[in-house]
């Protein structure tokens, strides 16, 4: 029953614990196990995706840091599986909640900041004024860059959560008009819903990619 616009995002509680948060574990079952010497096609496909992402992130991070794309790739896969599985009926979308997105974005940004300001404080100060800024604008640029640096985890988290909420909300609202419609309009609605679902599954992948690549970008700015 929909009592509220946002009730489809409510985690239902039982045993004083929201069991539908367990949907974040579902993605683990979709990553193919690498038990065997000869890879299955599923693993091969997943490996190809991972390698492509690795090269994508590597160009941002640079070659001197080894193994730093692992975290970003797993971040991408975790968010992507949550987004995509959330589109299936009766599966809870945990990425539509700020708890999830903030708890991914905030510690990462915080550790980047600590690392950067402690180890490369000159670089961090240098980042506050972009190259080619006129002398008059420099104080303002410092303020603007500082603000944009501080709100980064918030924008990262809100971007993902808002995208997920918007898509689900649109589909729920359109779907709820169904029982009142005539047959012809209902068919149009069905086609529209299918198109929306395709769009949303694209958005699910794109947003997870955006989250991962922006985190990579922020991590590359600290050294």
């Amino acid at each position: 029953m929909m009592t509220n616009l946002f009730s489809s995002f409510d985690p239902t509680a039982s045993f004083n614990m929201s069991l539908n948060w367990l949907s974040i574990f579902l993605g683990l079952f979709f990553i193919p196990p690498a038990y065997w010497l000869i890879p299955s096609r599923h693993l091969w496909l997943w490996y190809k995706i991972i390698i492509t992402l690795h090269y994508e992130f590597k160009t941002l991070i640079g070659n001197e840091k080894k193994g730093s794309t692992l975290m970003m790739i797993s971040l991408f896969s975790m968010i992507m599986f949550n987004n995509i599985l959330g589109l299936c009926p009766y599966i809870f979308t945990s990425t539509s909640h700020l708890v999830m997105t903030l708890s991914l974005a905030l510690p990462m940004w915080f550790s980047f900041m600590i690392y950067g300001w402690l180890n490369n404080s000159t670089h961090m100060f240098a980042h506050l004024v972009p190259q080619g800024t006129p002398n008059i604008l420099m104080p303002f640029m410092v303020i603007i860059e500082t603000i944009s640096n501080i709100i980064r985890p918030g924008t990262l988290a809100i971007r993902l959560a808002a995208n997920m909420i918007a898509g689900h909300l649109l589909m729920t609202l359109l779907g709820n008009t169904g029982p009142n419609l005539t047959l012809i309009v209902l068919n149009i609605l069905l086609i529209l819903q299918i198109l929306l679902l395709i769009l949303e599954s694209a958005v699910a992948i794109i947003q997870s990619y955006v989250f991962a690549i922006l985190s990579t970008l922020y991590s590359s700015e600290i050294h």
Partner: peptide, 30 residues
């Protein structure tokens, strides 16, 4: 039916961190 059900942010935070670590492990070994 609870509207805007209360969420224990700290416990969920640790849950997400643990699941993120699990994903890291899986990606490491794949």
């Amino acid at each position: 039916m609870p509207q805007m059900a209360p969420m224990s942010w700290l416990i969920l935070f640790f849950l997400f961190i643990v699941v993120f670590m699990l994903f890291n492990v899986l990606t490491y070994f794949s």
